[in-house]
Design a protein around this nucleic acid. Structure first.
Lengths: 211, 211
DNA sequence: ATCAATATCACCCGAAAGGGTAATGGTTTG
DNA sequence: CAAACCATTACCCTTTCGGGTGATATTGAT
């Protein structure tokens, strides 16, 4: 039984080539293709689609919003992004929106087909460049995190602060006086270039100084 | 010119099969293989390796620590994890440690070779299952984030708080009185089940209520 | 041996945080 | 239309924060 496939792509030539290409595959059946995804969720419903190939830059609502809607009304449908865009935001937004794969348009037809195959087998295919971006995202900040020169003690105090402890609670848990805690936090604030606890917490989390 | 390749794998049979398999490829040359990675950084240095295949569970220091050392002393070397482990921690730890790829041991030899090829072309190959985990990691929390029932106004106020604004600054920027801000934050704290601003900031960032 | 960094504590002080109570007007929803 | 929710403001009150200043002991580096 062939998978029901929908294509959303505003470039009509590309849309048609894709349709022909993918229809040639025995286990895909291109049920329909559209130049925009304004009613994507309805259309997915109508054709009982198993799989969607989604462009990002389209008139009307974009592909990212399209994924959201599709996944919202029918989470089981697999959606593979197919776009020229390789910037971090587009990639991560798509993934967060629920995309199951992210293929750049420079992908060869052969690779695209095997990506669609892979996604139907529960995988999460992505172009090498995208995979690299994703890996980078994990590593990011990890390196810069050490650059605030916090002492061991200061990190301990900061950690307790992030956990929601008051000065007094930190003092008790660290077995020191509250004035010491105060002094530590004063130093911490200086080193992080912030003026208050909330800002310090935000910076600590964003720069992964504490987990 | 063939890439210099090192293999770290404690299972001697697998290590030897890998060596034979990969040596058959014209563009890889298995310079050496070891049952542990205690001196991985030195060995990488010695053979001027371009690429490392790294098991995780080995006697002595594990593969994750091994990656760290290699990347630390020679960031240009590509490291592909090759392991049975498919749990989140092992995967994410490896990636954060600097791994350039993560292949499970159930990968076919053919796929493993193309993964190594891919990593040398700047990609980040991973087994479908791993890719799926990675995608999940991005989506996670995103769904639960909406569940605190914060109103639009409350989100605005929270956002300003996270940015390090005092009550007074929030009031000015929102064009409301400080008492209103106070009340909003009171409600926010209740909804987030926290008792103070720092805790709220931590929760907001961790649950991605604000960016 | 000396100097710098660190960790510790104390005191003062004004500003900010955070909780409670109460009231008004607007919007939405049953 | 009433009930519920939301945004808004005011006032009171106690605790906490955060900055400044200064002091002492320990430690590691020079």
């Amino acid at each position: 039984m062939a998978y029901q496939l929908l294509i959303f792509e505003d470039n009509s030539r590309l849309r048609e080539s894709l349709a022909i290409l993918l229809n040639d595959e025995t286990n895909f059946h291109v049920a329909a293709s559209y130049p925009d995804c304004d009613k994507a969720d309805k259309q997915v419903e109508k054709y009982k689609a198993d799989l969607v190939v989604m462009d990002i830059d389209m008139p009307g609502i974009g592909g990212v919003e399209g994924v959201k809607r599709i996944k919202n009304s029918n989470p089981a449908v697999k959606v593979v992004m197919h776009t020229m865009f390789d910037d971090d935001n587009r990639i991560f937004d798509s993934i967060c929106a629920g995309a199951d794969g992210y293929m750049l348009k420079n992908t060869s037809p052969l690779h695209l087909v095997s990506a669609l195959q892979e996604v139907m087998n529960g995988g999460a295919p992505m172009s090498p460049f995208v995979a690299q971006k994703v890996f980078q995202h994990f590593r990011q900040a990890k390196t810069e995190s050490e650059q605030f020169n916090l002492t061991v003690r200061e990190k301990e105090v900061l950690e307790l602060l992030v956990k929601g402890n008051s000065y007094k609670m930190i003092a008790d848990k660290s077995f020191v006086s509250i004035d010491t805690v105060k002094k530590h936090l004063q130093n911490i604030y200086h080193k992080l270039h912030v003026n208050c606890g909330t800002e310090a917490v935000a910076k600590a989390l964003r720069h992964k100084i504490v987990e």
